[in-house]
Design a protein around this nucleic acid. Sequence first.
RNA 1: GCGGGCGUGGCGUAAUUGGUAGCCGCACCAGACUUAGGAUCUGGCGGAGCGAUCCAUGGGGGUUCGAGUCCCUUCGCCCGCACCA
Length: 923
Amino acid sequence: MEYNFKEVEKKWQQYWREKKIYKALLDPSKPKCYVLDMFPYPSGSGLHVGHPLGYIASDIFARYKRLTGFNVLHPMGYDSFGLPAEQYAIQTGQHPAITTEQNIKRYRFQLDNIGFSFDWDREVRTSDPSYYKWTQWIFIQLFNSWYNPVHNKAENIETLIDHFRDQGNVDIDFPAGDKELFTAEDWINFREKKQQEVLLNYRLAYLSETTVNWCPELGTVLANEEVKDGLSERGGYPVERKLMKQWSLRISSYAQRLLDDLEKIDWSDSLKEQQRNWIGRSEGADVLFKVAGSDLDIQIFTTRPDTIFGATFMTLAPEHELVEMIVTPELREEVMSYVIEAKNRTERERMAEVKRITGVFTGAYAIHPFTNEKIPVWVGDYVLAGYGTGAVMSVPAHDARDYAFAKHFGIPIKEVVSGGNILNESYDAKEGKLINSDFLNGFEVKDAVRKAIAEIELRGLGKGKINFRLRDAIFGRQRYWGEPIPVYYKEGLPYVVDEKDLPVMLPEVDKYLPTEDGEPPLARARDFSYKGFPIETTTMPGWAGSSWYYLRYMDANNSERFASKEAVEYWRDVDLYMGGAEHATGHLLYVRFWTKFLFDRGLIPVQEPAKKLINQGMIQGRSNFVYRVKDSNTFVSEGLKNNYETVALHVDVNLCDDDVLNIKAFKEWREEFKNAEFILEDGKYLCGNEIEKMSKSKWNVVNPDDMIDKYGADCLRLYEMFLGPLELSKPWNTNGITGTSNFIRKLWKLMHKPNASHELELAISDEAPLKSEWKVLHRTIKKVKEDVDRFSFNTTVSTFMICVNELTDLKCNKRQILEPLAIIISPYAPHVAEEMWERLGHKESITKASFPIVNEDFLVESEFSYPVSINGKTKTYLEFPLSLKKEEIESEILKAEEVKKLLNGQSPKKVIVVHGRIINIVL
RNA sequence: GCGGGCGUGGCGUAAUUGGUAGCCGCACCAGACUUAGGAUCUGGCGGAGCGAUCCAUGGGGGUUCGAGUCCCUUCGCCCGCACCA
């Protein structure tokens, strides 16, 4: 019989499910391999062919690792808290849990269709109380921890309390903001309320009044990572800056470690670079400038302390608290109206108008700490409140922004580093010699920076400092569909819920909207309280559950702990993490942060979640167009469209095959096309095409289920891999799928022959293979192994094709060849491989087999004829027997008769041999 | 502006990582068989030339016996960050 993929795939999927073939057990006798995909948010539109790309690749890797003797953990789950289900709930009143459940069912069906080797007994759902119980538990650990800068790790808050009791806080760096000093005695005399307030300043999960990204449209705050170009990442609504009391996580304490440990992990350069940029470490100094005629100081941060003599003015961010205090009475009105205007501009407006230079003089002057000159203090919105100290010393000669500002307002420009032409533009480069700079004169920039910092510290004007761009992560969301924060309020102070009372269940509400007084939806819940005290009404952000899910898979059904000690000790970290690059500065930063935190607290044995990470490329859509002749119901084929005046219309790509329109289906597609007429070329209607993002509105969404129905799961798997390198973004194009489809048929035919009535029947030979057949096999095994090890799955598919073509040419149907062949193909095309395996007489699943070992003996060439170049030029052919050892090759070749003949008796100076072959002869 | 990546036939791509450029597949062309099909099989398929050969990896230059690969320069494309002091 012909290969019937529908029957075969169904049969094996059922077999795998029933026998729990892919169940992973903790087995210390075997090496572990943890292969993880980024779990999906189960959206209403289901999977399209782009989603499984990464899943297929990781599945291949997982299956390959199983065959090579690893105990593989390859789980899947759902990131099931999130906005779309909540938006839908707001519109329809349906509980998000119901929508989510429906979507998950659909996802599961689609995933099963592709034949993945997930261990579904370990499925996790972030919205499940048995899961978010532990998300809440980790939050409590964060709340009960502080970052000890001396030990450079998070510790139990009790150690801080002990320290306060013994020594106060004099010797402890305050993590953020101004430091209020107290002694041990002070601490003991503080009331409970005061103590708790102080501790809140040190906890890793803390409540504070901060400027947040407020999105009025979504009615919630967002983390920096969730804002793109001043718009919300989800929905694309404008975001404002707003001062609010909010829960935050102190990720900034981990900035240096998050940066340093990038060195230790095998992630792509671009992704690491994105994280480095996001963390944004810069070295420089904090310097104090006195305000003339007052005892106020302006603290600035600069990375160029060497240029301090070039500071001709200072600029404060409009939000800076000193603005109000230093502005002179005459200018107060003007300055404050500028401040208000600047504050009211949204982030987006501010960004869009980067080129616009605005600012206003405060009337106040600062005293230059070295020259004692009076320099004017300005307010300008090019200075950001959120970075450094929100104030800068402006050195127009050596900073492009200061330069533009100074030019615009006619402020003097003083050159202090030679090498540029400051009449035309600022000289920002960090090289050149210092001039006009007193004690720094003559130093190179690099040395001057060091010298300047030393001098600043010596004179008590400030000190060297490392600044990070990374801000603490805002953790509260004014939304319903998320994890409740396990906190209650007593006398206005937050306390965490007792661990034994977890989870704090998400309460039922009558509506999923904020209350009339603007409280989050949870405030609608009746009696949402703990021991009579009100519970926090904001919920956790979408990234909370995904920041530790990889740990839950290790022991997904544990009700005593987030995962048992044995499980985290055994599985440790992810060996291969597959997912999109869009999570570079969101999820992938948070999951590293939580991992380091849990490590610090002795809960897990690793500091990084994933050793190796691959970002699979996006699959774009390939839209098809039909061309309607203007004002008619006639459609003209693509090649002839220039002869008419036409309008291009998106047409459902599923109505086209290789860009040829299925006219019958098209007519049935929409009522208006029922009587459409067509102008054909070569008897066909050819559609135009264009690469666009895959989306419903563009009619270019290809559903994997349809592909599987038409070609089978194995064919889809092979084809998605064959499209090109994994990391590359590429358009989905089914035009080439016949290639992989043919391949599966050819593979099948290796062990089936047509009988008298032209039907295929099993034909396997038990004869010993010929050397040529062994050679084909072992070359393939070798190549496949190398390819999988370097994640080059597209070349592997080519390798399989070559192998099958060659075996077909050799008419090889030998069992000893087909068995290993089935094994090496099984990670890619598991269904057909299982079926072959069974037909070869095996009772057990092919997944229990072992990946064959390469026998190099079959690959050694004894004799060959190949082109050789002389002095890198002329090519000629040479036959030379090669059975020599590496070190013998050159000396033997040098005296070989053949070579001399070739050179008319001359002896070569040097023979270049690569992989046992003479490549070039130098005379 | 800064950072990361890329540029090879009509198309997707490959090249043992510095060693015969174009593997494999699609598309296309020719042929065979035929139960007439969008099946299967055989052959061809970067350019020029009857040919041996020559020219070709965005352009220019360099290192090397030898460069798609390394270096410099230039052009073009994609992605990320961006008033971060």
